[in-house]
Amino acid sequence: MAAFIPTKKALHEWRLYLFVIPSLVLIAVFAYFPAISAVYHSFFDWQGGNYKEFIGGDNFIQSWTDEVLWQSFGTVFILIIANLFKMIPSIAVAVVIHRLVSDRWQYWYRVLVVVPMIVPELVRLFIWKFFYDPTFGLLNKILDWIELKPILVSLDTYVLHWNVFREGFPVPWLSEPHLIVPSLIFWGFPWLGAVGVLIFLAGLESIGREVYETAELDGANGFQKFLYIEFPLILTQIRLMLILMVIGTVQGYGLQLLLLGQDGGAGGAGMVPGLWMFNRAFSAGQFGYACAIGMILFVFILVLTLINNKYIRIQR
């Protein structure tokens, strides 16, 4: 434990405070000041310059009737549900790596899983954007190659009526409003998360080999072993990744900004709240309104964090 220093002695030891002051100044200037400024300016009509006019709660009233904002929360909700399923590959791969007998293979698979993290995120993002390219993109080439295209075309003609899959025309993945959200969801297939896999593996490490052997004697199959041995042990890690994923999805907009641009793609189909905030500030110059959207996001995320802290205890 840290040594307790009474007030009298503290006056003598005042130099200790110098150790914490640089960090404090940094967070005060670059984190607390902007946060307070955001709260303050959400009540103003502000273009980012010196002129500003107090308008009370008008920004929030405007946000209530802002259809784009509502729609963007709807999109984020869909993305969260999709991301929930996208956690499965990481869990499956972690479990299978853990079940390997050879420690050496376990190590090398870990290395391979981490490799995508080493390539700059942006590079990965742009390669995927290239995959979606209608003329050069691999996705269309693969569809033609495995002859899935005719199936999609008839699905579109008879069921979906989106008129996006047409015989003889390349599929415009990122420029058709109907296809934007599906493309965002498919993005990054097979959705292996390096951090996720490593975290799950760290959780699985406490299971000894003999536990498996006992289970095998009892005639447990692979899935039962997962259900009764592995899943309960990594539940803490799954919850941790879950809350990180939800918060990350609610506030993230880098992917949408780079794949679709500031307007969220054709028809604004890929618009998410963070991107709408970015758009309002840097494209429309409505800094005050952007701050108000930021506040709404903040409250949203705060509630999620508090729910997490209250109901989901993470054991250390």
Partner: peptide, 17 residues
Amino acid sequence: TLMLIPSVTNIVPLFTL
């Protein structure tokens, strides 16, 4: 407390700062 403040809310005032 700073852990509770998501970076997304700060970005606009940070720009003007």
